[in-house]
Nucleic acid binder design. Structure first.
Lengths: 209, 209
DNA sequence: AATATATCACCCATTTAGGGGGAGGTTATA
DNA sequence: TATAACCTCCCCCTAAATGGGTGATATATT
């Protein structure tokens, strides 16, 4: 056994898929499958024994789901890199997985080569993603072009979100506190909220700022 | 001229690099370089004439910089896809570029093949990124594991960030308003802030929530 | 010329949040 | 067994934010 071969664990409930992955991965000399599970609980139980560097994780699983599993594994063992492999391209799932600690997210239509490339990329400190996933992720940085707020209101809201008070905003924008207040009232009315933090929460969620 | 070949514009101040890119891109029949500029102003001036589908954009430029140029171009012409090509792997620049509207971010050590792959990926609706950039982006979703806040405090702060008032937080956590207040006071002291929105701003910035 | 929108400004009243302090109980850990 | 976090609750007081109005000015747009 070669100590430098990366240890990989597979979690995937479909037997055929799981065995297929194992075959593909074991066909390459750089890494090998130490164990393959059909549920996350068993994987977590055996982490200390398996000592994987990388886990290839499905999301739709019997018992605890992949997202929770990722969070648990990352908490207990931050060094392990997790690559999500699933059929879902739903944006919420993607962000949940990444927030939970996944290092990569590939969808199941990827070829054998792409699967192996993803593993290589993770080993080299990268974050492999399928094309559509990468686009979702990148889009999440971009503002909503259909903001109901005027540019001045957006400006005020951005300062609010930075933690500034009414008077600080007034100072920075060279207006009176009452004017700032007036803008904020209009913002509240447009966003249908009635407090600073609600406004910030809604604006952040809808990417108005 | 083939109407189905994608129109590409290059903005790159280094003459050799710019001409090199043009040669590489023109060597492929799927797309061609309609124009190549050594500054962003000229590119913007000629957008209507050039009608590019894709712009390959450097960030360090004479005159207006690449980030501003991306924002301007995207505002005037949201359909254009911008790929950043730069030597900088600085995380602030990456996020600024993506927020401004870049669809991809590749660094200058990429091979000719990778450059062409990036263009293909953008045409197919993807978001090409160099390995290190993708990692930066993915990491930006993950929480700071060294939070100074207790789990209860984090819970309270998350509710604050959702726009809840003291009394709503108290209700949701089955504690009194005074207890919620007490937690919030501790949060403020730990984060060295003194208002809700400052706390949210700081916590968001440092990924405590 | 009329309408709408954004921007700016002020008043009053009430509610909420913030700063100061104290205090009892649990839990973990040294 | 200290002792240090953490979680819970309470008091008082001040400052800040919010909600309800009103109204002027400028700038597009129709």
């Amino acid at each position: 056994m070669n100590y430098f071969r990366s240890r990989i664990v597979i979690v995937e409930d479909n037997d055929a898929v799981r065995e297929g992955f194992a075959l593909i991965i074991n066909s390459v000399s750089d890494y090998y499958v130490v164990n393959a599970y059909d549920n996350a609980e068993d994987c977590i139980k055996n982490l200390k024994k398996d000592k994987p560097e990388i886990i290839l994780m499905d999301l739709e699983l019997p018992g605890i789901n992949g997202i929770e599993a990722i969070a648990l594994i990352k908490k207990q063992n931050p060094g392990i890199e997790l690559i999500v492999n699933t059929i879902y391209e739903n944006s919420d799932l993607v962000f949940q997985a990444l927030c939970a600690g996944a290092s990569g997210y590939i969808t199941k239509n990827t070829s054998h080569t792409e699967l192996l490339d993803a593993i290589d990329e993770v080993i080299q400190g990268g974050a492999p993603m399928s094309s559509k996933i990468a686009k979702l992720v990148v889009n999440s940085f971009q503002k909503n072009p259909n903001s109901p707020l005027s540019s001045r209101e957006t400006e005020v809201l951005e300062l609010l979100a930075k933690g500034k008070s009414y008077s600080m905003i007034a100072q920075e924008l060279f207006i009176t506190k009452e004017t700032a207040k007036s803008h904020i009232k209009n913002i509240y009315s447009k966003l249908q909220v009635n407090s600073k933090s609600e406004a910030i929460a809604k604006a952040t969620k809808e990417k108005l700022i």
